[in-house]
Amino acid sequence: MTGELWHHLAAQVEQLDAQAGRLIRRALTEHTAALRVQVAGRAGTGRESVETQVRELLLRRVDIEGGQVDAAVGGVAVDTPDGPDPVLDGDVVVYVVPRRLDPAVAHPADRAALTAVDPCRLVLVVTGGTDDSECALVARATGVPPDQVVAVRDEELLGERLAARAVVARRLRDEELARVVAGVPAAPQVRELVEQTLDLVGLDPMESVAAGLR
């Protein structure tokens, strides 16, 4: 329903202000694009296997609030010799760490990489024969919330964690779309249509404009 409101707004705006209409259409295209899911980790952590597992889970179309995930999955190598630091800015970031002899101690490269990830977009996967108690220690060592840490062998739970982060990613995209649309320069007649739509989707027009200017 919300998507229909945005597309109806774009159609109305295009008739009144072509430039504003193009800007809103561009924002809608970005909003509806497939979620970018990055699977990151150091060499030897099992990242490639987890990437395959994540891709297969998403191909099964994990349900999200009555909908389904449309996602593009890509691997990202971390801590490569002479390589640049990766940019972990996906809609969802699945970070892979191996089981360690002392799970309460995180590898420095992992800890550094994780600090650059938006926590609300993160799923931390622990490879090897890890159990729940070890996952809790890994969570404490890395600073990742325990409910976002999962053992690789628990495929059902991994699917649930992916779905939960995808829900968050979709909501963040909704908020970004509202901010962009609220900040589009337009004539008063168009501004009125924008404010009416923001009101219908439950967002305060002035708050959205202010957020877009920050």
Rank of each mutant, 00 (worst) to 15 (best):
G3D: 12
E4A: 15
L5P: 03
W6A: 03
H7E: 15
H8T: 08
Q12N: 07
V13P: 01
D17L: 10
L23A: 02
I24Q: 05
I24S: 07
I24E: 04
R25P: 04
L28H: 02
T29H: 13
T32H: 14
L35M: 05
V37S: 11
V37L: 14
R42M: 15
G44C: 13
T45W: 03
R47I: 03
V54L: 12
V54C: 13
L57V: 01
L57I: 07
L59R: 14
D63K: 11
D63Q: 11
I64A: 06
G66M: 15
G66W: 14
Q68T: 13
V69E: 09
G74N: 08
G74C: 12
G74D: 13
D79N: 15
V87G: 07
L88N: 11
L88G: 10
L88C: 09
D89I: 04
D89Y: 12
V93H: 15
V96P: 08
D102P: 11
D102W: 12
A104V: 01
V105G: 06
A106I: 12
A112F: 11
A113N: 12
L114F: 09
V117L: 06
P119W: 10
V123E: 13
V126H: 06
G128N: 07
G129F: 03
G129S: 12
T130F: 01
S133T: 15
C135Q: 06
V138G: 03
A139I: 05
A139K: 08
R140E: 15
T142G: 08
V144R: 12
V144A: 11
D147V: 07
R153L: 13
E156S: 10
E156Q: 11
L158N: 06
L158R: 04
A164P: 00
V168K: 01
R171T: 03
L172H: 06
L172I: 03
V180E: 01
A182G: 00
A186R: 00
A187M: 00
P188E: 09
V194A: 04
V194F: 05
T197Q: 00
T197G: 00
L198K: 01
L198C: 03
L200E: 11
V209T: 03
